[in-house]
Amino acid sequence: MMGERRAAARAVGATKVYGSGAAEVRAIDDVSVEFASGRFTAIMGPSGAGKSTLMHCVAGLDTLSSGQVFIGEIELGTLSDRRLTVLRRERVGFVFQSFNLLPSLSAAENVALPMTLAGTRPDPDWIEHVIDTVGLGDRRGHRPAELSGGQQQRVAVARALAARPDIVFADEPTGNLDSRTGAQILAFLRTAVSELDQTIVMVTHDPVAAGYADTAIFLADGGLSDRVEAPTARTVLDHMSALDAGADLPGRAR
């Protein structure tokens, strides 16, 4: 199944070490993973498992200690800061858990921000379409402070999709939202993948959120530990319990 689709991004032997000596922490350790194009992948794992670090490194927000990451066929480690910035602008979209929007810009301006920064004229029809898709047509002139948390996150999703990036990274996008609003956001992400053929990688610890993905991969102690295709909240929970049980086994370092 993996082989049928081109990888939108992949990591090869990705390792990230913080500190040194006794204080050394291996946030991710020799992780190799591919994120298939046009699919919705959830990265799962307990706190401290290295899921955010993996995502940051694959997205080019952070650099690896060793190993390689690719967006498409471009190896990020070889890029200058400037090229990396341009790559992020043109080929990557982000949705963060919180503080996703610039407070001084209206909703529509926030959506168009990556294109504005690139100095390209955003296609107004497309922006319109994206804003309508996330259901904020009547709110496009509002400032973030005038929007609810869920609405703000929908603007963030719209921004991530608006530039038609190769891949969207979402870091706990529903972490700050109640379950109903969270469900709306996840539904939008799902729609984007199914109908617009968008590639999305989402970090979450919420089994329900993972249930919207095509694939869930599990991280534990900086390493890839498991993989579930077409997950549901139920199956994800089962896998997590299994991992927890394994983690508690004596002799396994945490």
């Binding site: 910035t85 602008r89 610039l102 921000l113 920064l117």
Partner: peptide
Amino acid sequence: LLRAVGATRGQ
């Protein structure tokens, strides 16, 4: 955030 969504250091 600006940097993440594509602002260069110069910008």
